[in-house]
């Protein structure tokens, strides 16, 4: 990636590739938490729809999921109180998982920024503004968000769903489950949440260091 194509995006890709192990572990942990968040969100939507529509089993279309879910449903006899508790539980779980995801990205980016303080100083010294250096880091964070979302949706979700289905099938009855529904709005929303979460955590992790004068930041890098 050189010449006209050497731009901040290729700079960010080079860095992610260079620190491949860290990039992969970040993507892996973030995609698992995101998959949980998408799962609980979809179940939340499923339960809501179930309650609203009060009809039979909601059919989902999770890529790679198995039919086992058709056996699980909200218990028709479930009381309003229990349904409400279920909704609250799912909402809290989703929120908690997203907070964890935020700290995963924040921690990764904060470590990366600290290790790259000399690099930031050099970029500032050769004439990049605070906004331009920030843009490089945000592109990197945004890429982590997009890759993690893709992995979460197409690998993480089927894995978690099938695992949950298997565990429930081994249970002694009395459990209920809702078929998760992944539709376009939820996919788009989860992408926006994933990228937004990465951008915010990257911004918070890097802005203080980037704003420092280059003479304070610059130390030997290579």
């Amino acid at each position: 990636m050189i010449g006209r194509t050497f731009n901040p995006a290729s700079y960010a890709i080079s860095h992610l590739r260079h620190g491949l192990f860290r990039s992969l572990t970040t993507v892996a942990t973030l995609s698992i938490t995101l998959a949980f968040a998408i799962l609980t969100s979809s179940m939340l939507l499923g339960v809501t729809q179930r309650i609203d529509e009060d009809e039979g089993l909601l059919r989902g279309n999770i890529p790679g999921s198995i039919d086992m879910f058709s056996e699980f449903n909200i218990d028709p006899e479930l009381s309003e109180e229990a349904r409400s508790a279920l909704l609250h539980w799912m909402f809290l779980t989703t929120a908690l998982v997203l907070i964890v995801a935020f700290f995963i990205v924040y921690n990764t980016m904060a470590m990366s920024v600290e290790e790259r303080r000399a690099e930031i100083g050099v970029l500032r010294a050769i004439g990049f503004s605070t906004a331009e250096v920030l843009r490089i880091f945000l592109i990197e964070g945004g890429m982590i968000g997009i890759i993690s979302w893709t992995v979460a949706l197409f690998l993480g979700m089927p894995f978690i769903v099938n695992l949950a289905a298997y565990l429930i099938s081994k249970g002694d009855g009395g459990l209920f489950f809702v078929q998760p529904v992944i539709d376009l709005p939820l996919a788009a929303l989860s992408l926006a949440v994933s990228v937004g979460l990465c951008l915010i955590s990257t911004y918070l992790a890097s802005i203080r260091r980037i704003r420092k004068p280059p003479v304070d930041t610059m130390r030997p890098a290579v």
Partner: peptide, 27 residues
Amino acid sequence: QFFNLIPSLTALENVLVPVMFDSRDMS
């Protein structure tokens, strides 16, 4: 003194760093 090159970039990419926001092809 300590060169301050970007470790993740090749020699050519390091030379191109100052112009990476430019639309001109400087390769």
